[in-house]
């Protein structure tokens, strides 16, 4: 992989973000509105002696942004190139597919950190919730689990769009949200219906949220929970890379890759 080419794609993402109101709204404004809404719900619950539930809800919404933004950045970032008929230009340059994807992933990570910083600050000032109470190590591990998982989902979505065209482009910003109800994002997994718990255990995101809540409650790192989450996320990632490679190759084989821009 070549760092300069990764920088080139990263630069494109940066230019698009500063010029495009849609991206700014999707990546910063909507998430911040969600954080404010959940912060208000959290205040309400705290005021009714449900301080733990209140903290869990706001923490869940703050951390969910990591998954959302990274998945959005990888999948929708490429859509701008397709919509502008620029994807072919990118791939007839000496650019490796891996470099392209990694650049979008890094761009997503930067945006997620920026939003977490703003959202965390807002929560501390307005809702008196200190996100850092989770613990720095727990936060880092949560970020790691979520970013790997979001990347895995996003590249499958991207592969599907390359393979089947823009008629399924809505998946690029919607598929990841299907994961949210099954990830125990806002409450402990033990409080979910039994059948849903079984589903939730298959998602790495569940372990990230569980680990973060553990850190918040006990001030300690749930190494085992994060360990399972990381292994599961890595498995998802490896599998998704195979799926993506297959879909990308099929897309070029069927001519769909070039037709995506027509």
């Amino acid at each position: 992989m070549n760092l300069r080419r990764i920088y080139g794609v990263f630069l494109q993402e940066y230019y698009m973000t500063i010029h495009s109101l849609e991206i700014f709204v999707d990546v910063f404004i909507f998430p911040l509105i969600n954080i404010v809404v959940f912060g208000l719900i959290s205040l309400y619950l705290v005021g009714n002696d449900n301080s733990v539930a209140g903290a869990f809800i706001l923490l869940g919404m703050l951390l969910w942004q990591i998954i959302w933004i990274i998945a959005y950045s990888v999948a929708v970032g490429s859509m701008w190139n397709i919509w502008s008929r620029n994807l072919s230009n990118m791939f007839v340059a000496p650019l490796e597919l891996e470099e392209y994807i990694v650049a979008h992933f890094l761009s997503g990570c930067v945006k997620a950190v920026a939003l977490l910083a703003v959202g965390g600050f807002l929560s501390a000032i307005v809702f008196r919730f200190d996100m850092l109470a989770v613990g720095l190590m727990s936060l880092l591990l949560t970020f790691l689990v979520f970013s790997i998982f979001a990347f895995a989902v996003a590249i499958v979505v991207l592969g599907l769009i390359f393979r089947y065209g823009t008629r399924i482009q809505a998946l690029s910003w919607s598929l990841i949200t299907i994961v949210q109800p099954f990830s125990a994002a806002f409450f402990p997994i033990a409080d979910m219906p039994r059948a849903l718990q079984l589903v939730a255990y298959f998602f790495p995101s569940t372990y990230g949220f569980e680990g973060a809540r553990y850190g918040l409650l006990y001030g300690d790192v749930a190494w085992g929970v994060f360990g399972v989450g990381l292994i599961l996320a890595s498995l998802y990632c490896i599998l998704s890379m195979f799926v993506f490679q297959y879909l990308y190759t099929r897309s070029r084989d069927t001519g769909q890759f070039a037709r995506n821009e027509s």
Binding site: M16, W80, R85, N86, V92
Partner: peptide
């Protein structure tokens, strides 16, 4: 390199 009337660059950036 490649140039085509059917492929454009990103419209939203300079």
């Amino acid at each position: 390199n490649f140039a085509s009337a059917f492929n454009t660059l990103l419209g939203r950036i300079t």
